[in-house]
């Protein structure tokens, strides 16, 4: 069974997944009948307007939220088991670094909690800080870094446990556009090098089209999937590809999907 799940090419699978929140104004359907299969090594973007449940979906996959009904498997096991096995990394909307820890100590936080040896902690921190181009910043404190660098530290921290699966919840949403473009290029290279499965939440069309192998378009009230768009741009693309006709065509399709699912009457 376990060898099956390792060999299986499916990273994430949901079947008729639904989630209702109980609020003071009655129940709110955050996710409605989500069926999604993500293959190993894919870069999947979830895109949609605020309130479409894209963040909630990732939180359910990461077992930070419990679904009301439906089945989910993450790496062939339940999300809770996947969380207990620490088989995924999670990057939040903000860097979420601890201000009293240095960059290196922030990166080793999960390793410390999981009881890795000191030397292994040091090696992994060096390796992944190197990967996000932050070598030499080990002993700095978060406030001494720019917003983009802080978010790269948090990516290194998520990678340091060497998960096969990476959840990223609008990781660059709070950054300025120039920094964001730069980090998009870096993230694409990183994905090319590590071949992790990435589930990426965004509300930026260019970001989604640039990064993804597939784009999942979602709509709000109730949160559901309205389109899944294949997006196989050349793997060695740079940010300039955004001018190309192929890029614009995919962007167009994403925008159409978002329009059809969104009611603009409010």
């Amino acid at each position: 069974m376990s060898s099956d799940s390792v060999l299986s090419s499916v990273a994430v699978e949901t079947n008729q997944l639904s989630l209702q929140f109980q609020t003071n104004d009655g129940p709110v359907v955050a996710l409605d009948n989500i069926n999604l299969t993500i293959e190993q090594g894919e870069f999947i973007s979830l895109i949609g307007p605020s309130g479409c449940g894209k963040t909630t979906l990732v939180r359910v996959l990461a077992d930070l939220e419990k679904p009301t009904s439906g089945q989910i498997s993450v790496n062939g096991i339940s999300p809770e088991q996947a969380r207990l096995d620490q088989s995924y990394g999670y990057v939040f909307q903000a860097p979420a670094l601890l201000p009293w820890r240095t960059v290196k100590d922030n990166v080793v936080l999960p390793l410390e909690i999981m009881g890795y040896s000191k030397s292994r902690q040091r090696d992994l921190a060096a390796e992944y800080l190197n990967l996000v181009n932050l070598q030499g910043f080990e002993s700095k404190y978060p406030w001494q870094l720019s917003g983009g660098m802080q978010q790269r530290v948090s990516i290194a921290r998520a990678l340091s446990v060497e998960p096969q699966l990476l959840f990223m919840d609008e990781p660059f949403g709070a950054l300025d556009e120039i920094t964001r473009d730069h980090l998009n290029e870096q993230l694409l290279q990183l994905w090319g090098k590590t071949r992790k499965t990435v589930v990426f939440v965004t509300h930026s069309i260019p970001e989604a089209v640039f990064l993804s192998s597939r784009i999942v378009v979602m709509s709000p009230r109730p949160g559901r999937i309205i389109d899944i768009i294949d997006c196989n741009l050349p793997p060695d693309r740079s940010i300039d590809i955004r001018e190309s006709p192929q890029f614009l065509e995919i962007s167009h399709r994403v925008r159409d999907g978002l329009k059809s699912g969104h009611s603009y009457d409010d």
Binding site: L64, A96, P110
Partner: peptide, 11 residues
């Protein structure tokens, strides 16, 4: 967010 982070580590 930080409490969620600790939860993803199963702390």
């Amino acid at each position: 967010m930080l409490l969620d982070l600790m939860q993803t580590y199963n702390a």
